[in-house]
């Protein structure tokens, strides 16, 4: 067991870019697949990274999506430029959403983004201020 970071994959996620949304997650999924990571872990990472990426697109002024690979775990990290989450407890409540009507019409804004990210994680950290939100989600890798 080691905590040494093996490699970091980073994606710049633009605010309101629904055309590109999902590209970062797709790239992460395909990379992990090519490494032979097990399917159920990849599914969890795909759900987490997609929700994280969509949150950056819908709610932030833009930010970064990172996938940090360690020997025994994967961290999905997002860092954005604001405007921050006013009430984190509410945001973590299933069904609570601040998404606009136009975004909801596209099928987003179910209020399941952060709850899904937490549900599929082994560890979930979030910190938010007006300057930005930082989220780190850890998924432990299964022993082979």
């Amino acid at each position: 067991m080691t905590d040494k970071l093996l490699i970091r994959y980073s994606y710049n996620i633009a605010a309101n870019d629904f055309i590109a949304a999902g590209k970062g997650s797709s790239s992460i999924k395909n990379t992990l697949k090519s490494m032979g990571i097990d399917a159920s872990t990849i599914r969890r990472i795909a759900i987490i990274s997609y929700e994280a990426e969509i949150n950056l697109v819908i709610h932030s002024y833009g930010g970064m999506l990172h996938c940090d690979l360690y020997e025994n775990k994967i961290d999905i990290i997002t860092e954005d430029k604001g405007p921050g989450i006013e009430n984190i407890d509410l945001a973590l409540t299933e069904g609570y959403s601040t998404a606009t009507e136009s975004v909801r019409e596209l099928g987003f804004g179910a209020g399941m983004g952060l709850p899904n990210m937490k549900k599929y994680s082994d560890d979930f950290d979030i910190a938010s201020s007006r300057e930005g939100t930082f989220i780190k989600i850890t998924v432990l890798l299964q022993e082979v």
Binding site: A21, G22, S26, K29, I54, L106
Partner: peptide, 16 residues
């Protein structure tokens, strides 16, 4: 099965 038709449905289908 869905009534959603915009581009992100394909991203979801690809990821899953």
């Amino acid at each position: 099965i869905t009534i959603q038709t915009h581009i992100n449905t394909v991203a979801v289908a690809e990821l899953l």
